[in-house]
């Protein structure tokens, strides 16, 4: 698999059909989980009535926010060790998508929080805070890449920052957990109870899978754009050097 992705030509051949396939399958599964969430799933009085339907949008976005930062760190590491150009293209493509999903997680969480917690924003909630910090890590990553003069430097600087951020994320999570355990009041809704009935769990897991597949398709699309862009740059460089 990694071999296939390491070669740009093979990647282009593979992603030519894999990217649209991922987007289609992801979108279909997403529609199914939304249909389940809005129409099929019964309301749950314990979780605050109808508002728990927000789960089928919010929780997948939270998973994707986490997964995309891990993906950014992993591709950065692969690029830093083996210098596979495609790994850097993947990291560059993941960043804006991950930032968007992180923002989506914050926005939906905030809207969900208003009727259940009575406030748009709860500083005491460790998960919200961790995701907020991750959002800033994504912003910093994109700003740093944009500020670098050459593509090579952008790749190196971005990889260093992504890895420094990645080793910090567990520490940030831990510190925010300790901090919120001091501040937290007991009324906060807990989603991660072990006994979620399958009528909720199945659409939730399918929804998470849907967003993940869709995200992979988007990443491949952006990577294809990047490959085309670099090929164009090569042509311009050749034209300028007159060969």
């Amino acid at each position: 698999m990694i071999r296939a992705f390491a070669n740009p030509h093979r990647f282009m051949a593979l992603s030519r059909w894999l990217a649209p396939a991922c987007l289609c399958i992801g979108a279909l599964l997403m529609v199914w989980s939304v249909w389940q969430g809005l129409w099929v799933v019964p309301q749950d009085d314990y979780q605050g009535g109808d508002i728990m339907r927000a789960m089928f949008v919010h929780v997948p976005s939270a998973w994707l926010a986490m997964a995309s930062y891990m993906g950014l760190a992993a591709t950065s590491l692969i690029w830093f060790i083996w210098r596979h150009e495609l790994a850097d293209m993947a990291a560059k493509s993941i960043a804006p998508l991950g930032a968007a999903y992180t923002a989506m997680c914050l926005a939906t969480g905030s809207i969900w929080g208003k009727p259940t917690w009575g406030t748009w924003w709860l500083w005491d909630d460790a998960r919200m805070m961790s995701v907020l910090v991750m959002f800033f890590l994504f912003l910093g990553y994109m700003a740093l890449r944009a500020a670098m003069e050459t593509r090579q430097k952008a790749a190196r600087a971005g990889a260093i920052l992504a890895m420094v951020g990645a080793v910090n994320v567990p520490l940030i999570k831990f510190s925010v957990d300790i901090w919120s355990s001091i501040h937290q009041d007991a009324s906060v809704l807990r989603l991660d109870g072990p006994a979620m009935p399958p009528v909720y769990l199945t659409p939730l897991l399918i929804g998470g899978l849907a967003h993940m597949i869709f995200f992979a398709g988007l990443t491949m699309m952006l990577m294809r754009a990047e490959v085309w862009g670099r090929r164009g740059d090569v042509l311009i460089a050749r034209k300028l050097s007159g060969s």
């Binding site: 987007l23 979108a27 997403m30 939304v34 969430g37 809005l38 309301q43 009535g49 109808d50 508002i51 339907r53 927000a54 089928f56 949008v57 919010h58 976005s61 998508l97 968007a100 999903y101 923002a103 989506m104 926005a107 939906t108 809207i111 969900w112 208003k114 009727p115 967003h211 869709f214 988007l218």
Partner: peptide, 23 residues
């Protein structure tokens, strides 16, 4: 929905706008 309909629709609207926008 019995209550909080506006919040639910807002969340699902974001859930639609973000993937479509990214696409």
């Amino acid at each position: 929905f019995e209550q909080n309909a506006g919040f639910i629709w807002a969340i699902y609207a974001i859930g639609a706008v973000v993937p479509i926008g990214l696409f």
